[in-house]
């Protein structure tokens, strides 16, 4: 190799610059001019001012340090979170917030999985919802009011970077923010996540005729009690009596907002498919949904065991308090 270059710092620096630019151009600059880097899913819509304000909070608090927002195309990930992430979901993300560490779970499919009231409680005090969680408390967000003029500036800057017509907020939308807190905003953003993609577990239908293979055996009931405590009590309460605005009472005779219980197959379909199974069941539930799809997250036998426990518990309550006033709880199923 010619030794001359090691005596000429300017030529040397130019050669070094060219050397580092080759890979930069091929893998970073050139792709920018390809359509595959700028896809947009048809269902994807821009943030509302409230959602954008929530995203700003998400950035400010460094949520990206513990939560990813990209589901990998791996079987176990799709089971846990939902369909894997698509390039076209991130069209409005400046910057991307995929993260690189999952101290907490992935959030790409968090939208629509749980009701707002659950998030409000969880953000304020995560350990009250999940005792051994290590997430910090964000109760202070509920005290912080949004600043509509700042939100408008942020919104307009982002809107100016997209083609016209994609960002549609009006002045009234910004004015309405003065009533909202940072917590409202963060929850709205959380519910925005993943909205453009069909929730995969819901794709299967509901088979009402399915019978519980475990029946009412004591082992099944005991196992169901444990699974219920670990996965369901968070929203439905330790006894299954529900929580206001979060989850319905499972012990009354109302199912998904309509009087009259349904067979075990309906329970199974709803637990595996989550909110999206409501349509198949023909009952409304709570309009904005919130039942997590546990299909793939829990073993089928564990789901059946939970149903065994619920049935045993229902029978137990009917015996204990036949005249019990059900109206003290929520009026009907809100899945």
């Amino acid at each position: 190799m010619a030794g001359e270059i090691y005596r000429k710092p300017v030529s040397f620096a130019l050669m070094a610059a060219v050397t580092v630019l080759v890979g930069s151009i091929v893998t970073m600059a050139y792709p920018m001019f390809r359509a595959e880097m700028h896809e947009k899913l048809e269902n994807l819509r821009a943030f509302t001012p409230l959602e954008l304000a929530g995203r700003d909070v998400y950035q400010r608090e460094g949520c990206v340090g513990c939560h990813t927002q990209t589901v990998r195309p791996l079987r176990s990930e799709v089971l846990r979170y939902g369909d894997y992430s698509k390039a076209g979901e991130f069209y409005f993300d400046r910057p991307f917030l995929w993260g690189s560490k999952r101290t907490g779970p992935d959030l790409a499919r968090e939208g629509g999985k749980r009701p707002d009231a659950w998030h409000a409680r969880h953000y304020a005090d995560p350990q009250a919802v999940t005792p051994r969680s290590n997430m910090p408390r964000y109760a202070f967000l509920a005290q912080a009011r949004l600043d509509p003029s700042e939100a408008r500036t942020h919104y307009r800057v982002l809107a100016s970077l997209s083609p016209k017509g994609q960002w549609t907020a009006t002045d009234a939308d910004f004015a309405a923010l003065s009533e909202k807190t940072e917590l409202d905003a963060l929850i709205a953003y959380t519910q925005w996540l993943g909205h453009a993609v069909q929730r995969k577990q819901a794709a299967g239908g509901v088979e009402l005729a399915l019978a519980n293979p475990l029946g009412d055996s004591p082992q099944a009931v005991a196992r169901g009690a444990k699974v219920f405590e670990e996965n369901c009590a968070v929203c439905h309460g330790a006894e299954g009596h529900g929580e206001t605005q979060i989850a319905p009472n499972l012990m009354d005779d109302t199912f998904l907002g309509v009087k009259g219980d349904m067979p075990d197959g309906a329970y199974f379909g709803l637990i595996t498919g989550g909110s999206d199974a409501k349509a198949a069941l023909g009952r409304p539930g709570l309009p904005d949904g919130g039942m997590t799809a546990f299909g793939g997250q829990l073993a089928n036998d564990d789901i059946w065991a939970v149903i065994s426990w619920i049935r045993a518990q229902q029978a137990h309550e009917r015996q204990e308090a036949p005249a019990r006033e059900q109206t003290e709880h929520l009026p009907g199923g809100q899945h």
């Binding site: 195309p73 791996l74 079987r75 799709v78 089971l79 894997y84 995969k200 577990q201 794709a203 299967g204 299909g295 793939g296 089928n300």
Partner: peptide
Amino acid sequence: YDQAAPAQP
């Protein structure tokens, strides 16, 4: 992914 994973458990 499509080859390895069935759509549903």
